[in-house]
Design a binder for these strands. Sequence first.
DNA 1: GATGAATGAGTTTTCATTCAT
DNA 2: GATGAATGAAAACTCATTCAT
Lengths: 199, 199, 199, 199
Amino acid sequence: MRVKEGNKETDILKAAIKVFAESGYHKAKMSKIAEVAEVASGSLYLYYKNKEEILMKVFDNVWTEIYKSTEILVQRNDLNSEEKLDSMLDLIFDTFSENPDIAIIMANEQKHFQLREAENFTPYFDKFIGLGQKIIGEGIKVKVFNKNIDINILKVFILGAFSELIVEWAMSKGEISLNLIRSNFKYLLKHGILNPEGK
Amino acid sequence: MRVKEGNKETDILKAAIKVFAESGYHKAKMSKIAEVAEVASGSLYLYYKNKEEILMKVFDNVWTEIYKSTEILVQRNDLNSEEKLDSMLDLIFDTFSENPDIAIIMANEQKHFQLREAENFTPYFDKFIGLGQKIIGEGIKVKVFNKNIDINILKVFILGAFSELIVEWAMSKGEISLNLIRSNFKYLLKHGILNPEGK
Amino acid sequence: MRVKEGNKETDILKAAIKVFAESGYHKAKMSKIAEVAEVASGSLYLYYKNKEEILMKVFDNVWTEIYKSTEILVQRNDLNSEEKLDSMLDLIFDTFSENPDIAIIMANEQKHFQLREAENFTPYFDKFIGLGQKIIGEGIKVKVFNKNIDINILKVFILGAFSELIVEWAMSKGEISLNLIRSNFKYLLKHGILNPEGK
Amino acid sequence: MRVKEGNKETDILKAAIKVFAESGYHKAKMSKIAEVAEVASGSLYLYYKNKEEILMKVFDNVWTEIYKSTEILVQRNDLNSEEKLDSMLDLIFDTFSENPDIAIIMANEQKHFQLREAENFTPYFDKFIGLGQKIIGEGIKVKVFNKNIDINILKVFILGAFSELIVEWAMSKGEISLNLIRSNFKYLLKHGILNPEGK
DNA sequence: GATGAATGAGTTTTCATTCAT
DNA sequence: GATGAATGAAAACTCATTCAT
């Protein structure tokens, strides 16, 4: 029999990530994904039920990975709250900077599907957000973080700033230094923009 | 004197904003926009060249308005840099909180069209961003804002955090207090999350 | 505005009848129906939800018409049972001989959809069968028809024989005399094949 | 000695009969046939050229068998015309009641392929019909059957009534008594529906 | 200007058939 | 012979846009 050559499932997913990032989900054509994956269009449906399922798989993969790493992080006793937040930010910076196309897809499509196709959207995004909240909550308890800040607002603040920055970086195709973005992001998040030395 | 109401061009734009916010641009049907605008579908094309042009007009309207108000703000002598930043943030908070559907559209669609249909995208967005940068730049010069922060990164940081927050609010249909969001946002932006009293 | 020219809904139905009769429902292409109806393919969907709905409409139309005429027939007091049966047979002979393509479609497709898409199948077929049974039942009561015959079996017997004959005629494109078929059918149904004069 | 069971060619045919009866030929999937036959889908093509050939084989098998048995019947000298007709009817009743799925397939698909794929359709159906005509023709000659009946019409009449009845029985999954159907069928065919005792 | 019926290009998806192993 | 992964042609259907009235 004809045996699976290489790994078509992965090839297709990689191709889809590329095409979705390039054209946006709605304008992306299945035929283009097939072409990039060097696979017949019918083969897409051997591995994925339909176009949406491919996208959902992209999100599921990243958020599952991020969630799992964060879970381990949360349980570490050798790190204080500030260090845990730092590590968590490094984690997502690393993940998306290794997969800039996924960052672009997340920024452009995630909200739409989270809102309007919630039942098919990976539960690991919300679970990850929950862990982030936990880290911050602990930081507040031990008075490292300001207790007057609304934690629900904070999480949205962080997520928004982060995803905009990572996409800006991804779109610039590396022209902007990721490390500069990362350090500025961390600094801003912790100290804000005011000149600490006063005017 | 009040301009006569029932202007079709405006009706269509309002209807489109509603429909785009509800379904997302790509899934929005022209026939639905026509229905909501209480206009025949053919009439849409009397006022707008095509579907995309309607969306572009939505963006052009908000960013032009925001740009113009910001321009006036920038020129005021009675405000220092921190006050100008505050006012600018109030400006966009006010604008989008009066038009939550536009906030949703901005969050979901703007990036796509900014990137991939740049030639049709309103120049007033970039012009507005320029003004924002100017305000901050001045603040740095007078040492109100921290000079070590990269201004390009900062603008993306602010924009990302802001739009995520405003959409969160818009999607929640008013369940979250806008004032709480605004004050937290301003505080975070200025002072960050660390407890100022130390641990 | 562009006003309905002619009657596209009817044009499409007529075209579909032709195409379904020619190729069979499953092999019939929507594009072919559109071509025959001299209409764009998209227009088909202005009048019918999908391919199946067109076919269902064909069945609904014939059986509704036949049912209504039979209903009137059943109520007549001037006819005895044998005459009513005769008239009913004439009715269906006339209907299908005026629409030979529908006869072909009925013979080839009806059973499939009756069985497997029962919820979309016209209720007027069963209602018509009910009236047929009523006529025969009355004939048995007044001893015109043989009381030993199972009426459920009889109705299937008649229906099967009739539809096979009408299709044979329709397929022959008029080579066989319809009147000959009709008289032989009536005779056989009443007297059977045995030579009445005995051997 | 029993022929070895588990013959793939036969397994496939049996599976196809089941699947065709269940879903109808056009909706039947080759993959489903393979699954039911417990065979790989590629193996279907080792034994049959394509989907249509499988169906054609189904028809060929029944009609060949029926033809051969009828041929023997025709040549018997110990039976008069009426008895021959009776036996022939028993023959087809027996054949299809032992293979109700084939009865269903015949009723739903035969006409389509007889008409539109005549060149691939088994010649044994027509040959069988020829024998049937011969039996009746002889019955007319010896004045057992009514000479005024058109023999071509009669054969269609019988075939239609029979196949509708056998399918009705097959679909009812045995709820209706086959013997009752058979006796009513024979009676109706010979004597018709009129009450022999007059009104 | 206004209408909405009509258009037809464009895309996803299915599934019979092939063929490398 | 047997397998089942891979293929790609084919077709239904959608919907932005046009245009006759």
